[in-house]
């Protein structure tokens, strides 16, 4: 068997597997989300008796899903910006400077990834209690920012290391001030890294369950609190299906966007672990 043929065969296998593990479950969720409230889908019906969009309307108008989306999509850009801003100086040091203890510092910067997230969340919320910080928004913002700084540090230090000293020197020799040097030597190389880390942290922030759930509970609803309520405690299959579907859509667009920015770059570099 020649190589292209093997490739095609494995490709088909992978696509087949994705159908079973992705397309099929989502289609089933779609089917459940379309069950008409007047005609429950129950034993022994094999398919829902009547389909309608009523549940989508109900969920959107009576639950706090819109509010949760608002909170989460307001938090995410703030977290992304804060993390990136705080990470920039450290990333510069990692990417462009040599100093004693650099390797140890790089390892320590991964600490937030190593401590289990629910431990961080629980004792961070306890810390907030002791400090008297009652704003849930601020609490989640601080917690998630620190949690995601490592990602920004990793991505940006690679970006900084890619900047070529010759270009900086050349710009300086030609009489360029700090702003010109930044614009010509730094910005073009940094830009994809900046965008990538912002989008990456944006997605991570929306996904993040532990801090948003523990700190936000009970009244600051975010996407994960809604999910926990609809998929855990108040589990009703049709409603859970609607909520799941609504939440997956924005993520797909974000991921497509990130893929575009990162096309040329090694993905392992982006995830910050390698």
């Amino acid at each position: 068997m020649n190589k292209p043929c093997t490739n095609r065969l494995i490709t088909l296998l992978v696509i087949g597997f994705c159908c079973i593990s992705l397309v099929l479950p989502f289609s089933l969720a779609m089917l459940w989300s379309l069950v008409d409230p007047g005609h429950p889908w129950s034993y022994p019906h094999i398919l829902p008796p009547v389909l309608s969009l009523q549940r989508w309307v109900d969920i959107w108008t009576t639950t706090s899903l819109p509010q949760a989306l608002l909170h989460s999509y307001l938090l995410a850009p703030c977290v992304a910006l804060c993390s990136v801003l705080l990470a920039l100086p450290t990333a510069y040091a990692f990417g462009r400077l040599e100093f004693p203890g650099k390797q140890a510092a790089q390892l320590i910067s991964l600490l937030p990834l190593i401590v289990p997230s629910f431990v961080v969340a629980l004792f961070f919320s306890s810390l907030l209690n002791v400090l008297g910080i009652y704003s849930r928004f601020l609490g989640i913002l601080i917690g998630q920012t620190v949690l995601f700084i490592p990602y920004a540090i990793r991505i940006l230090s690679v970006s900084f290391s890619l900047i070529r000293q010759e270009i900086i020197d050349a710009t300086r020799d030609l009489g360029g001030g700090p702003i010109t040097v930044f614009k010509t030597a730094y910005l073009p190389v940094l830009k994809p890294g900046l965008l990538a880390s912002i989008i990456m942290i944006f997605i991570l922030s929306i996904e993040e369950f532990a801090i948003a759930f523990v700190v936000g509970s009970p009244d600051f609803v975010t996407v994960p609190t809604i999910l926990y309520s609809y998929l855990g405690y108040n589990f009703i299959r049709s409603n859970a299906a609607v909520v799941s579907l609504i939440l997956v859509v924005p993520n797909i667009f974000l991921m497509l966007l990130m893929e575009r920015f990162l096309k040329a770059r090694n993905t392992a570099v982006i995830t910050g672990k390698g």
Binding site: S64, P218, D219, I226, S229, Y233
Partner: peptide, 22 residues
């Protein structure tokens, strides 16, 4: 708000010393 029973109860107890609660 969407709080669970225990979370609401905890919030009530935790807030009781504040002059104005939620």
């Amino acid at each position: 708000p969407d709080g669970s029973h225990d979370a609401n109860m905890n919030k009530f107890l935790a807030q009781s010393s504040r002059p104005t609660g939620d």
